[in-house]
Simulated scan of single mutants.
Amino acid sequence: MTTMDHAPRQIAVKVSPAGDKLITSGANYLHMSKKDLVEEAVRFYLDARREEMQAGMRELLRELDGTRASRVAMLAGMTREELDSVGGVEEDD
């Protein structure tokens, strides 16, 4: 059995008309495509905010303690206390 490798499909990103105007102007003056400009800008922005993102990930991992209750609370957008106040969940054996 053979599998076919599919190229990832491109995803459209919606921006405001003002944002599109900025992207179009920037891409024109930098002699690059709008797609390349947006990809490079996102990469630059995320790199500049890497420490903030890592702090958020560390906080998220602190909330996940390996229990079913922590997973359910996170998925439901609740605190453990809120989950417990509505009956909680049974833990795996």
Results as ranks from 00 to 15, higher is better:
1 M>V: 03
1 M>L: 04
2 T>W: 03
3 T>M: 07
5 D>H: 01
6 H>S: 06
7 A>S: 01
7 A>E: 14
8 P>V: 01
10 Q>Y: 05
10 Q>E: 13
10 Q>V: 03
10 Q>C: 02
11 I>Y: 03
12 A>G: 05
12 A>K: 10
13 V>E: 08
13 V>L: 14
14 K>S: 08
14 K>V: 09
15 V>L: 09
15 V>R: 08
16 S>F: 08
17 P>K: 05
17 P>Y: 03
17 P>V: 02
17 P>R: 07
17 P>H: 10
17 P>C: 00
18 A>S: 14
18 A>R: 14
19 G>V: 10
19 G>C: 04
19 G>R: 14
19 G>W: 06
20 D>G: 05
20 D>F: 07
21 K>Q: 11
21 K>P: 04
21 K>S: 14
21 K>D: 09
21 K>C: 11
22 L>E: 08
22 L>S: 06
22 L>F: 07
23 I>H: 08
23 I>C: 08
23 I>L: 12
25 S>E: 13
25 S>F: 09
27 A>W: 02
28 N>M: 09
29 Y>P: 02
29 Y>F: 12
29 Y>S: 12
29 Y>G: 02
32 M>N: 01
33 S>Y: 05
34 K>A: 01
34 K>Q: 14
34 K>L: 03
35 K>F: 11
36 D>N: 10
37 L>Q: 13
38 V>D: 04
38 V>K: 05
39 E>D: 12
39 E>Y: 04
40 E>S: 13
40 E>R: 12
41 A>L: 11
41 A>K: 15
42 V>L: 15
43 R>P: 10
43 R>Q: 12
43 R>M: 06
44 F>W: 07
46 L>F: 15
46 L>C: 09
47 D>V: 02
48 A>Q: 12
49 R>P: 09
50 R>M: 13
50 R>I: 15
52 E>D: 12
52 E>A: 01
52 E>R: 11
54 Q>R: 12
54 Q>D: 14
54 Q>A: 05
54 Q>I: 13
54 Q>N: 11
55 A>R: 15
56 G>S: 08
57 M>L: 12
58 R>G: 00
58 R>F: 02
59 E>C: 01
60 L>P: 02
60 L>H: 05
61 L>M: 13
62 R>A: 03
63 E>C: 00
63 E>F: 00
64 L>W: 09
64 L>K: 03
64 L>T: 07
64 L>V: 00
65 D>C: 05
65 D>P: 06
66 G>K: 13
67 T>A: 00
68 R>F: 06
68 R>T: 15
69 A>L: 04
70 S>Y: 02
71 R>A: 08
71 R>H: 08
71 R>P: 01
72 V>C: 01
74 M>Y: 00
74 M>C: 02
74 M>D: 05
75 L>W: 01
76 A>Q: 15
76 A>H: 07
77 G>I: 01
77 G>R: 00
77 G>P: 08
77 G>T: 00
78 M>S: 03
79 T>S: 11
79 T>A: 00
79 T>Q: 06
80 R>V: 06
81 E>H: 10
82 E>A: 04
82 E>Y: 07
82 E>D: 10
82 E>T: 15
83 L>I: 10
84 D>M: 09
84 D>E: 14
85 S>C: 12
88 G>N: 13
88 G>M: 08
88 G>I: 07
89 V>Y: 03
89 V>K: 01
90 E>F: 04
90 E>A: 04
90 E>Y: 14
90 E>V: 05
91 E>R: 14
91 E>Q: 13
91 E>M: 10
92 D>C: 03
93 D>W: 06
